[in-house]
Design a protein around this nucleic acid. Structure first.
Lengths: 122, 122
DNA sequence: GTCAAATTACGACGTTCCTCGTACAATGAA
DNA sequence: TTCATTGTACGAGGAACGTCGTAATTTGAC
């Protein structure tokens, strides 16, 4: 019988992933997670999607193993949560948790990213 | 005759440091700069100081060379500006520049750091 | 001119990071 | 069962990072 954790898997027997408890999320880690271009891109997509997105659902100019790596960093640092759904792995932003810990921070980062985009490609 | 740059040095002949132009400051770099505990500490001190502070004015549990390193990262990534004043080197947050590029971001980070502090040492 | 204070330059060391390719595992559909 | 899809594990390479100590530099004061 499988161990179940927080982001309750769809169906019993499903593979389950470790997520840091809300109280274990640290600001430095979140900033570090967001500081990478690929990861920031993922976070922006998830924010725009207003829901869950599979890993394959976000196009990135890096190999699959590298994608896996970045998603894991985001999860382990408390920025996203992931659950398996069939052969896919779905990703969601931990907006509520992040907002509770660092009010407004994520929103500002997303906004800043938008602004920078507009600024850079004129 | 000396080359002068943006943060005009106190007196002619003073050593001058390179600072990125406002338009060259990138979000990922700023986040990366803030993601290090020592650097976040420096930034918080500067924010609290409401003005300039010498490098020696901020106590850090690392060697002097490491301090130099961190201040340089902050400057090169556009977070602070530095000028020499006598034998000291003064540091100031580039609040206006950062706010113009990424409205509210710095404030939220500082606030988040405060909140986390309160939360961690109960 | 000498001296102390503040900071840097340089080189080094070990760690973490981002990236990849290949081989493997889990799932659902035919 | 077989197969295609999706993602992982593992190992590796190279770059960047955080840290240090020592020697050198700049400056202001004596």
């Amino acid at each position: 019988m499988p161990t179940t954790t927080t982001p309750s898997a769809d169906r019993p027997g499903a593979r389950v992933l470790d997520h840091p408890d809300v109280t274990a999320i640290r600001l430095e880690d979140v900033l570090h997670a967001l500081a990478d271009p690929m990861r920031l891109r993922i976070v922006r997509c998830l924010a725009a999607a207003q829901g869950e997105l599979s890993c394959a659902g976000i196009e990135l100019p890096v190999s699959k193993s590298t994608c896996t790596h970045h998603y894991r960093v985001l999860r382990e640092h408390g920025v996203i949560s992931q659950i398996y759904r069939g052969t896919a792995k779905m990703n969601v932003l931990r907006r509520a948790d992040l907002d509770a810990l660092f009010p407004g921070l994520l929103e500002r980062v997303l906004e800043a990213a938008e602004l920078q985009d507009g600024r850079l490609d004129d």
